[in-house]
C-alpha cells in the first residue's frame, strides 16, 4: 500500500533522510520512532506531498505522490502534531470545507459530520469559531476531517499530543478498527508505550537512516531479548549515556 523507495532529502548540506526504503502493506499500523531531528516529520511531509524529495519516490497504492499528487492525496489523510486550521471557520464549516475538497457527496457529509461530532464529543462547540477551540479540540477536529473522507492511508505525527486520556483511548480504538478494515496507518511518535501497544511493526530512524526495523518481538530478538522497547530505543539512539549525567542532578 505504501512504498518508500530510495528516498533522500537534503536541506543544503544537511542530509535529513538518507536512502530510506520501506514497504508497508495494507492494514498495517507502522510506528516510526526516532530522536528529535532524526527525519520523522520530514519523511511524513514528503509522503503527503508537502515537501519534495531530493531523490527517490513514494508510492501510495501505486500512485507516485510527485507525479500523480491529486490521485494520491485523494486516498491519504494527515494529522499533524500542530494542527493549524482556519480560525475564522466554525467546526462544522471546516468539516464541510474538507468534505467538499475531497468531493464527498453533500448527503453523505450531512450524515457523517454529526456522527463525527458525537464521537469526538465536539457537538457543543460545532458551531463555534475554531479560534475558541483548545489544542486537543482542534486535534480532534482534524481527525474528524480525516475520517470524513475515508482515506486508505493515514499519516499521524504525534497523534496523542493535547488529547485527554479518554480521547486518547478513543483515538487508539479508532485506529485499531481502521487497521482491521484495511486502512494503513503510518505513525510517528515519541510515546514508546503507544508504539509498543499499537504498532504491528516499528522502524527506528536516526540521522535520516533506518537503524532498526521489524515487529517488537523481532527487535527484541535481534537486539536484546530481555529489554523493553524504551531500552532498545535508548540503546540504539544513544540515550543511555545520559544516565551517568542524571546522577549528578
Amino acid at each position: 500500500m505504501l512504498q518508500i523507495i530510495n528516498l533522500t532529502k537534503t536541506f543544503g548540506s544537511l542530509k535529513a533522510i538518507d536512502n530510506l526504503n520501506l514497504d508497508i502493506p495494507e492494514g498495517e499500523i507502522f510506528g516510526f520512532l526516532g530522536p528529535n531531528g532524526a527525519g520523522k516529520t520530514t519523511t511524513i511531509k514528503i509522503m503527503c506531498g508537502l515537501l519534495k524529495p531530493t531523490e527517490g519516490k513514494v508510492l501510495i497504492d501505486g500512485y507516485d505522490i510527485q507525479k500523480e499528487p491529486e490521485k494520491a492525496k485523494q486516498i491519504i489523510g494527515l494529522i499533524p502534531d500542530h494542527p493549524f486550521i482556519y480560525p475564522k471557520l466554525t467546526g462544522r464549516e471546516f468539516l464541510r470545507f474538507i468534505g467538499s475538497l475531497y468531493r464527498i457527496p453533500l448527503k453523505e457529509q450531512e450524515e457523517k459530520i454529526p456522527e463525527l461530532f458525537n464521537m469526538f464529543e465536539l457537538n457543543q462547540w460545532s458551531d463555534d469559531l475554531i479560534e475558541s477551540y483548545s489544542h486537543g479540540m482542534q486535534q480532534k477536529l482534524v481527525m474528524s476531517g480525516v475520517l470524513l473522507h475515508n482515506p486508505k492511508v493515514i499519516f499521524l505525527d504525534e497523534p496523542m499530543v493535547g488529547l485527554d486520556p479518554k480521547s486518547a483511548r478513543l483515538v487508539k480504538e479508532i485506529f485499531f478498527n481502521l487497521s482491521k478494515r484495511g486502512v494503513t496507518i503510518f505513525m510517528s511518535t515519541h510515546t514508546l508505550e503507544i508504539a509498543e501497544k499499537m504498532c504491528h511493526r516499528i522502524g527506528i530512524i536516526q540521522t535520516g537512516k533506518v537503524i532498526a526495523l521489524g515487529s517488537k518481538e523481532t527487535l527484541q530478538e535481534n537486539i536484546s531479548p530481555d529489554k523493553n522497547l524504551e531500552d532498545i530505543f535508548l540503546e540504539l539512539t544513544g540515550g543511555t549515556e545520559y544516565a551517568e549525567l542524571l546522577k549528578y542532578l
Binding site: G49, P69, E70, L78, F84, Y86, I98, L101, Y102, R103
Partner: peptide
C-alpha cells in the same frame, strides 16, 4: 498562513 498544509495535503490541484 499556517493553514496552507490543508490545501497542499488535499487532492485539489
Amino acid at each position: 498562513k499556517d493553514n496552507f498544509w490543508i490545501i497542499r495535503a488535499s487532492p485539489i490541484s
